[in-house]
């Protein structure tokens, strides 16, 4: 071992020791202090009932399938819409000026309204027009609300990606005789989309959580199913179960997004 390697190994051992000790101290404090809180026994009984947890978990998992389904059919629509809005906002053709305005208004509007509010407004408002079945379905209008909000975000992410591609790339393509359209399609967009994959991964994690908001307008997905169990059993443990299920999906997805982001940073530095 070189002198430097020995020194670094020593430093590492020391850092690990300190980190381990401080983590242990915090855990011990929590374990000792939390149960001493006056309401701890009541909280444990109503939030952490092992028997209820085990009994309701499979049904919650089944209900979560609906969340995943709503998520799965929303994503392609969100990206198609987001891309269309991003391109509309970047157009310089005077004939398409109305599209540009529309894109700007769309983004401002749907990014500015809380998702839950949009779910209520669209999910209750539009079926209220007296549409015949199946056009009054909360699945349709709930999905529309999610697509409106998230496509506005995705449009902005894509637009920042498009603008991050250096003009020299565009110049090179134009000088080869490519049309504006082909330049966008073959040169700019493929690079821009790759560059914003990590940001969009974070968007997908947020979307997966926000699907639960559709419970407010009808669909019996996981949050609503947990609410039903809560009323039935007079116990909040099903909510904890639902949280665990969300974490099982969102934690790996977030980690993966971070991994992509780091990889991208390293590749560019």
């Amino acid at each position: 071992m070189t002198r430097r390697a020995a020194y670094e190994a020593r430093q590492r051992r020391r850092a690990n020791l300190i980190a381990g000790a401080s983590t242990l101290a915090v855990v011990v404090l929590i374990v000792l202090l939390v149960p001493r809180a006056p309401g701890w026994d009541a909280v444990r009984a109503s939030f952490f009932d092992a028997e209820i947890f085990v009994r309701t978990f499979p049904d919650l998992l089944r209900a979560f399938v609906l969340d995943v389904a709503i998520f799965a059919w929303s994503v392609p629509m969100i990206f198609a819409m987001g891309l269309a809005i991003a391109l509309a906002r970047g157009t310089h053709n005077p004939a398409l000026f109305p599209l540009r305005i529309f894109g700007a208004v769309y983004v401002d509007l749907f990014r500015g309204i809380p998702v839950v509010l949009l779910v209520y407004l669209v999910g209750f408002g539009i079926p209220g027009l007296g549409l015949p079945r199946p056009w009054n379905s909360p699945y349709i209008w709930g999905t529309v609300a999610l697509v409106l909000t998230y496509s506005a975000y995705v449009a902005e992410v894509l637009r920042s990606g498009i603008e991050s591609i250096h003009t020299s790339q565009r110049n090179a393509a134009i000088c080869l005789g490519l049309s504006e359209r082909d330049t966008m399609r073959y040169v700019i967009l493929p690079q821009a989309i790759r560059r914003v994959v990590p940001a969009n991964m974070n968007m997908l994690v947020a979307l997966q959580k926000d699907v639960a908001l559709l419970s407010f307008i009808g669909p019996v997905e996981i949050l609503r199913q947990a609410g039903i169990f809560k009323s039935l059993l007079a116990n909040f443990t099903p909510y904890v179960g639902a949280a665990v299920i969300f974490l099982m999906v969102t934690v790996p997805a977030t980690r993966y997004a971070d991994y992509l982001m780091n990889k991208d940073r390293n590749a560019r530095s």
Partner: peptide
């Protein structure tokens, strides 16, 4: 190299 000959 092929992009422009193919498209243009």
């Amino acid at each position: 190299v092929c992009l422009a000959p193919r498209r243009v």
